[in-house]
Structure formats: structure tokens, C-alpha cells
Write a protein that binds this DNA or RNA. Structure first.
Length: 118
DNA sequence: CATTTGACATCTT
DNA sequence: TAAGATGCCAAAT
């Protein structure tokens, strides 16, 4: 059973980044982890999203892996079909391989010192 | 305190 | 380009 009352810091940091993803754009787990201040902790980003509740206000559907496709989850056999629908609703196009063109839809942020500008 | 796990990333074949 | 193997780090048990 996963404890929802985690330490908080890492998860909260990741959530804060995911919420900042603009409409119609997506970000990779590694990028989120990096922006959250945990470079190399891509898995933690996904783990944090996995701990999210269904009614959470976090746009978890805008988070995809480095390949630009939806990662197969373990708990749900549906495998993120809802996520794909949500992304398509945001004008995010998928190719025949169920992959997103990160060249166009990946969220780009510019790190200026300790301040990040979208 | 040590082991296992996980919505990943990156390198090599 | 696709598929397989390895490495990372933090949280949960």
C-alpha cells in the first residue's frame, strides 16, 4: 500500500513543475526531474505521478517519456488511453507509432540562474 | 539499516 | 530505426 503522506519535498517539487506545463505542450520525466531540482531522477517523476489521485488537479497527462510516447503503467491495463485522448484534445498530434513529435510539442524552458522563464 | 521496486534515460547491438 | 541491456535515485517495506 502506497503511503500518500510522503516526505513531500521531492513529490511537491515535481508536481510544481508539472502544473507549470502550458496547455498544448508536453514534458519528459527527465526534464521535469531536472527542473524540479533532481537531475537524473526521471523515475521519481513518474513515481510521483503514480502516487497522484485521480481527482488531482495535476496535468499528469502532459508528461511523457523521452521517446515522446505514453509509458505503459503497471497498475492499469488501460495503459494511458485517457492520457492520449487528453493530449489529442490539446492539439497534440500522435503519429502512427503512438508517439508525439517532441520537436514541436515539448515544453521549452530557459533556466536563468535560479529563475526559470517559460 | 538493507532490500526491492518503479508512469525513466541512455548506451550498445 | 528498433529492440535489449545497464545505470540512476528516491521512496516504501
Amino acid at each position: 500500500m502506497m503511503m500518500k503522506t510522503s516526505s513531500g519535498d521531492t513529490y511537491q517539487a515535481i508536481y510544481a513543475i508539472v502544473v507549470r506545463i502550458p496547455f498544448g505542450f508536453v514534458a519528459t520525466y527527465g526534464q521535469i526531474a531536472l527542473l524540479a531540482g533532481y537531475p537524473g531522477c526521471a523515475r521519481q517523476a513518474g513515481y510521483a505521478l503514480a502516487a497522484l489521485e485521480n481527482n488531482s488537479s495535476i496535468p499528469w497527462h502532459r508528461v511523457v517519456n523521452a521517446r515522446g510516447c505514453i509509458s505503459p503503467r503497471s497498475n492499469d491495463g488501460l495503459g494511458g488511453l485517457a492520457q492520449r485522448s487528453l493530449l489529442e484534445a490539446e492539439d497534440v498530434c500522435f503519429d502512427d507509432r503512438e508517439r508525439i513529435d517532441l520537436k514541436r510539442f515539448q515544453w521549452r524552458v530557459v533556466m536563468s540562474g535560479d529563475k526559470k522563464i517559460e
